[in-house]
Simulated scan of single mutants.
Amino acid sequence: MSIPHPEVPAPHALTPGGDRVEILGGQTAYWTYGPADAAVTVLAVHGFRGDHHGLAAIVGLLPDLRVIVPDLPGFGDSSPLPGRRHDIDAYRAWLTEVHATLAPEAVILGHSFGSIVASAAVAAGLPTSRLILINPIGAPALEGPRGVLTRLAVLYYRMGARLPRRAGEWVLRQRAIVRGMSVAMAKTRRRDLRRYIHDQHDRYFSRFADRDVLREAFETSVRNDVRAFAPEITQPTLLIVAERDDITPLSAQRRLQTLFPDAESVEIPEVGHLIHYETPGPAAAAITRFLAPSAAGTR
């Protein structure tokens, strides 16, 4: 049994086991939360190596919104995209079709790697009214505060790709590696919250289809960032950024905001790249305010 978040009840999906839809020839699994007749629908994209569980704490604090959270292709319960390399063009096309198929009216939300996918799709014309980015990748990962660790990660994924398949996948699913990443990323000193974070990573960070999907997704995550897409995004955009982010420092997040034609930023103190686990309350409050009818009317 998974460890519950110490502050937030788990949201209840309309279909507990999720639903399935064919997208670009593959099967995309998705979960829908909140009232069917909600005034606002949000389509949320999770981060690298995770699945829909990663956004559960934030979703649990948005009970008045309808929130749809798919698993990225090749992660969680979603199949890889057949015959396609999982690069930024594939992810952009995937999200655009998911949006058109499941909720053409939905606001787009992306966390971490999901911020790259979301920004790429919206910049290319995905017709959303607003965009929300949590822990956006606002600078090259190799240049972040933990650039050395990112370079080690590059070597790790390359080794997993070059070893014989069985040995490579064993290395890539190593629990010790996942736990080391989890320990490095968590900023909270609360033992109950750290237990929750480590349990989430232990359970869900090795649910990838195969090493090829994982390697391609990782390469996409380090070769792209939100800066390239920001100038083309005219929709009102909310950036929810962390004071101690290990991937994009706060100074770079502030520069990123200036690249959007219409963006505001909420800075959350004493947290790093795990806003979705450590500070879901402030993130959900910022989202609720941003999507409120009165806020929409001022833009």
Rank of each mutant, 00 (worst) to 15 (best):
A103D: 03
V117G: 08
G114C: 04
I137C: 12
S119Y: 06
T128A: 15
R130L: 07
I137W: 01
A118K: 01
L102Q: 02
E143H: 14
V107R: 03
P145N: 15
R146A: 14
L131A: 05
A124T: 11
S119R: 00
A106S: 13
A120E: 05
P140R: 12
P136N: 10
A120H: 04
A120S: 15
R130S: 06
H111E: 15
E143C: 13
A103H: 03
G114L: 08
S129M: 10
L102Y: 08
P140T: 10
A106G: 08
L126T: 14
R130I: 05
E105H: 15
G125I: 11
P136W: 03
A106Y: 08
S119D: 09
P140L: 07
A124M: 07
P145S: 14
L109Q: 09
A121W: 03
L131T: 06
P104D: 03
V117D: 01
A123G: 11
A124F: 06
A139P: 00
A139Q: 14
A118F: 00
N135V: 08
A124I: 05
G125N: 11
P140K: 09
P136T: 08
L109C: 10
V107G: 04
A103V: 06
S129I: 09
S112F: 05
L126D: 10
T128V: 14
L109I: 10
A106T: 07
E105V: 10
P104F: 00
P140E: 10
S112D: 15
G138I: 03
S115Y: 00
H111L: 13
L126Y: 09
V107C: 07
R130D: 06
P127R: 14
P127Y: 11
F113W: 13
P104E: 04
A124C: 11
G147D: 08
T128H: 07
I108C: 03
P136E: 06
T101I: 10
A139F: 09
G125E: 10
A139G: 13
P104G: 07
I108H: 02
A120Y: 03
P127T: 13
V107N: 01
I116W: 04
G138E: 06
A121D: 03
R146M: 14
A124W: 01
I137M: 12
P104R: 05
I134G: 01
